[in-house]
Amino acid sequence: MARHVRSIVLTGNGTNCEMEMAHACRLAGSDVVDIVYVSELLAGRKRLDDYDFLNLPGGFLDGDDLGSAKAGAHRIMNASIRGTDEKVSDQLARFIRDGKLILGVCNGFQLMVKLGLLPAFDGDYATQRVTLTFNDSGRFEDRWVYLGVNPRSRCIFTKGIEGLYFPVRHGEGKFIARDGEVLKRLHAQQQVVVQYSSGVSGEPVMEYPANPNGSVDAIAGICDESGRLFGLMPHPEAYLHYTNHPRWTRETLPEEGMGLLIFRRAIDFIRNNL
């Protein structure tokens, strides 16, 4: 019998894409979809342990006041769950150990990177090795971008997908690795999942605006070594139906938006493998 899939969409403290992310999980067939406030985790009323698929949506955690998602990451690491010594990060560690799936989009990706959940070399999910910082343009921008998908990546979310088209909506999306070694290893281990591309070929581009933020090697999203944790700056949950596409009134498009593919891969994987 097919497994029951339970998705959690974490929100609160400035997160703002929870509604469409939850909608994406539902459309992709998740049996349970709960939008949960971080405060509910901290109050001990909800636990990550009760879910299989953790969604970290976009937004502005704590206003990105100390750098994108910094204060949010800090809360997950340091705030105790009421009446216990446990931190949300302890639940997260268990979630990962159990082989469950995490998707971080935009601010959620920034959060994963700053927590050290990505790229998590050698199973170390607590050391920050890369970052997402201010766009070279120095400004927030909303624009649609083409993504080339690495066919050799182990990323579960993009299996069999060749190219994607999603909007970016961020001011701090420039991907930088700590050093050349980290960058080399990311490529060598096929953890670079999606790269900004011109759309014509799938080749990575460095030119603005196709590469909207100046990301090193045009990196738009990476996964961990297992392929079960995935973070990206562009928003798959913003393209669930053809009417979301900026040119739907002039192009013939499939009913379902490309973003749904990402969520389907995740839900199907959980149903069949966990």
């Binding site: 509604m19 909608h23 400004r139 927030f140 921008e141 909303d142 913003a238 979301n244 900026p246 040119r247």
Partner: peptide, 22 residues
């Protein structure tokens, strides 16, 4: 216009920038 998020909440249908190259 570009510096304003015009798509959050997932229900964008006709955006402020439209056409062949948006």
């Amino acid at each position: 216009v570009r510096q304003y998020d015009h798509e959050v909440q997932g229900g964008s249908v006709v955006k402020p920038l439209v056409g062949a190259v948006n």
